[in-house]
Design a protein around this nucleic acid. Structure first.
Length: 257
DNA sequence: ATGCCCTTGTAACAAGGA
């Protein structure tokens, strides 16, 4: 089985790239983030032609997550128990059962700056996610994948000095990630196809991708049974190249069975 | 080479992204 996660930064703008990538990569399950469309505008018919069922959770202009699967989607859940809002709940998490595994696609709040109310929201959102995942991980095989908007270590940013005092690298954010792992989830790190760091995001500006000045903020957290079945994991930086890419690259994971 | 912000909503910019 092959699954993947990808922050597409608008599924409408990315649709040609997404369809091309699906046809070439053929994941069984794909976790999508930042779809930026209302549910009724999701291109379900287009991905359906490639054999994918869709479960989407959208709110329009901002956020939006979805799951695609060509092996079935059951027991779809939008959001999670105790999820905070800003001030209202946003479309940032969706999960479903597929191939005997519960997949959750997450788009963690950005946080903006450490002194911004959005940063407090981010930390409370991650704390509530931890609580919800403690229940989910006890229920069976689990994969939580998406844009966590946190670089787990200083090795996960291209220059830690540049990020001093900024969001995405603060100790409370990293502790929140550690808390999520502590419920019984393992960090499945993709191989970088170039360079030493498995970055998944490169800013559009100033040729950052071409200088490999990136960040590892997209993560795959898997329960031990799933993590133990991993045969390969890759950051598909090819998808960051060319005309009209997302600023994030997908992570593609292969598992036995 | 991979190549030097992008997307959406709304109407020339505003806001968010990380």
């Amino acid at each position: 089985m092959r699954f993947a996660t990808w922050n597409v930064n608008s599924i409408k703008a990315r649709l040609p790239r997404l369809l091309e990538w699906l046809d070439a990569t053929k994941p069984d399950v794909l976790c999508l983030q930042e779809t930026k469309v209302a549910a009724d505008a999701f291109p379900s018919a287009e991905v359906g032609e490639l054999g994918y069922a869709t479960a989407e959770y959208g709110q329009g202009r901002w956020n939006g997550v979805a799951l695609l699967s060509r092996i079935g989607l059951d027991d779809v859940r939008r959001g999670f128990a105790g999820e905070p809002g800003y001030p209202d709940p946003e479309a940032r998490a969706i999960s479903a059962l597929s191939g005997g595994i519960r997949f959750m696609s997450v788009y963690v709040p950005n946080g903006r700056t450490p002194d911004d109310p959005h940063y407090t929201y981010k930390l409370s959102w991650l704390a509530a996610l931890r609580t919800a995942l403690a229940t989910d991980v006890a229920a069976g095989p689990l994969v939580v994948a998406g844009d966590f908007n946190v670089a787990p270590t200083d090795d996960d940013v291209w220059d830690p000095r540049v990020f001093a005092g900024a969001t995405h690298v603060t100790p409370p954010e990293r502790e929140a990630l550690a808390g999520i792992r502590a419920v019984g989830l393992r960090d499945v790190v993709g191989r970088p196809l170039k360079g030493d760091h498995p970055f998944t995001y490169w800013d559009y500006r100033a040729g950052m991708f071409h200088q490999n000045k990136g960040m590892r903020i997209d993560l795959v957290y898997a329960s031990p049974d799933v993590a133990g079945r991993v045969t390969d994991a890759v950051v598909d930086r090819e998808a960051r190249k060319g005309k009209g890419p997302s600023d994030h690259a997908p992570i593609v994971v292969d598992i036995d069975g």
